[in-house]
Design a protein around this nucleic acid. Structure first.
Lengths: 156, 156
DNA sequence: TATTGTTATACTCTATAACTATA
DNA sequence: TATAGTTATAGAGTATAACAATA
């Protein structure tokens, strides 16, 4: 069955996906941050933090790869806690721009620093070259795979 | 905030985790396999296929990192479709050993070959050395990170 | 008395459909 | 008439608690 490298890669990817996406990592970082938020809400803050600019509801949904109404709800929750502001987009009165408040940014940074701290400790024995290589290859792999899968649509 | 390599790595990992674990990859491969199964059920078959031997309910739950009762349900479903057999463990009458039937193995192999085929196409331009390196680093990263997180328990 | 698995139940996350308001 | 977002509703996936059988 296929090339052995790819066959052995698959379980590692599945496992990594679980460690990152669900359970352990995120869940624990949220507990450490002690913000009272849940994972999906933090995911919205994370997207805003990485974007470094206000985003529309639809744009957040696209980046999180979830449906729009879901983001509406999540934003309502974090707005109530004053972690984001929701202002009408001056370019288009239908749209809303979601922006981190200073408090929101602070919470998000605490969360990120917790995770990155664990990364540093986990990779303490890694030479810098391996880290860079892993980061580069991970991005390339995600891109190449996503592109291949996107082409499946067109093949119909 | 922390080392830049790790900060940029994070979104790539999150994205990879989404591409692999949810949506696109698995969902499409299931559709292509046309088995009528859902993702969690296929995940059980996948674990059995990788183990290359019958596994107990509890062992499957541990490998999938989900709760026991959930696996009981999933196994009931795939047993009804005759993709696995469920026999009493001769070593321990309380336990059940779950084993792939030939049909179950066939379905799982079709699923795996679909995914690995896409991997090969996605990585067509990758030198063999990069593939090996990526596989090695991915495993190491998952291991090191899981170990670091496991130590959080002991620190309490 | 502890462990393996099962049954029953409830909760979290996310999707779809119908609607409102702007464009 | 199309688009951005919202409200209402429903579904998938998983967890927890209580139980049964065997160790």
């Amino acid at each position: 069955m296929a090339e052995p490298t790819l066959l052995t890669l698959l379980p590692h990817l599945m496992r990594l996906s679980r460690v990152i996406g669900r359970g352990q990592l995120v869940e624990r970082a949220m507990a450490a941050t002690n913000s009272g938020l849940d994972r999906p809400a933090m995911s919205v803050l994370f997207q805003l933090r990485m974007a470094e600019e206000p985003l529309r509801i639809g744009e957040i949904a696209a980046r999180m790869e979830v449906a729009g109404p879901h983001v509406t709800r999540l934003v309502q929750g974090i707005e109530r806690r004053k972690l984001v502001r929701r202002v009408v987009d001056p370019q288009d009165q239908r749209a809303r721009l979601i922006d981190l408040t200073p408090e929101g940014r602070q919470v998000t940074d605490r969360y990120l620093e917790t995770i990155l701290g664990w990364f540093e400790e986990a990779l303490a024995a890694w030479p810098a070259e391996d880290r860079d290589r892993f980061a580069t290859l991970t991005k390339r792999f995600a891109d190449d795979l996503a592109n291949r899968l996107a082409r499946l649509d067109e093949e119909d």
